[in-house]
Structures are given as C-alpha cells and as structure tokens.
Amino acid sequence: MNIFRLFGDLSHLAAIIILLLKIWKSRSCAGISGKSQILFAIVFTTRYLDLLTSFISLYNTSMKMIYIGCSYATVYLIYAKFRATYDGNHDSFRVEFLIVPVGGLAVLINHDFSLLEILWTFSIYLESVAILPQLFMISKTGEAETITTHYLFCQGLYRALYLINWIWRFYFEGFFDMIAIVAGVVQTILYCDFFYLYVTKVLKGKKLSLPA
C-alpha cells in the first residue's frame, strides 16, 4: 500500500458516499445517470467475486463490501425509492454499445482464460467507460448540480491517483498490470474535459453549465 493508492481509495469512497448522501438527503436523483450507477454496480460485482475465494486484508475486504453495498443502495434509490425524480429522458446513453465490446475485449485480451480472471478483466474495461452515460447526460442537460460535480471530481481523481500508484509500484516493487494501467489511462482521459470545466468554473464558485 502506498499513499497514492490510499488517497485514491479514499477519493473513490468519498465519491460513492457523496452521491449516496446527495440522493438520500435531497430525496432526488435529478441529473444523475442511473445507467452509470448500474454499470458501477456491475463493475464491483464482477471485480469483487474474489471476496468469496480469497482474503487479502481487513481493509481490502471491508472496502469491497462498502463499495458493493453503497453502489447497490444508490441504484435502489434511483430506480425504486426516488424513481419519480429519475430523469430517464436525458439518461439515454446506449449502454449495450459499452457492455458488448467490453465483454468481447475481456474474452480476447486477459491475463488468464479463467472465469474469475475474465470477469475481473471485464470489470476493469467496463469501469474505464462506466462514467460515459453520466457525462453524456450532463452534455444533454447542459448543466450539473455542484454536488454532482464534486462527486465526478472525486470519481475521476481516484483512478488518476491509481496511475501514480502504478508508477510507484513499477519503480519500487517491479510490479505492473498492463490491463489495469491501459484501462486506467483511458478512464482518466475521459474525465479531462470535465476536470477542465471543474477547475475553471466550479472551483471559482460558478455553476457548471456547458455551452448548449
């Protein structure tokens, strides 16, 4: 464990908690892409099946349980409890265009052709594009609530910190995972235009609104 991975995990945890609290307290999921949240629930489910097969550490196990629990709770709030506030018209990204290619790629390019490994690889590839429905929804509505931009910033920062973690581990541990690194680079690149808007607008107290 190194400081970059720790702060990456804490940033990821913050994002998940921010979103859950925002929906719970405002009793509304307006502006939130339910499709992205479903994809994240799939990412955690397919990645953390090793909860059933191996124990790494209390930290590892407890964080995985929290991620899975919060992501399903978020999906439940969006599609069940506060479904009346779900903006289905703007959450129109065709997720099958993500899941099918990612599924195919996971079968073709992986470290080991075993079920758990292919599911893990699928989860890594899917996570790199899981935020697209959310970013697409913001581009369609042309704006995002400030709390949602904080959620997105933490979500984007987490994998950016993981990239530094992988540089650290390559240099100090001689360890690297090419699949995780390439997917992590793609994932972080997808946030770049949002990061630019976040820094130039939200951090200056303005509302995040895209030129319609």
Partner: peptide
C-alpha cells in the same frame, strides 16, 4: 517484472 494480478488492489 510481474505483469498481471493487480488483485490486491480495489
């Protein structure tokens, strides 16, 4: 160098 197995990460 070890490639693969970033399974100790989240």
């Amino acid at each position: 160098l070890v490639d693969g197995g970033a399974k100790d990460e989240l």
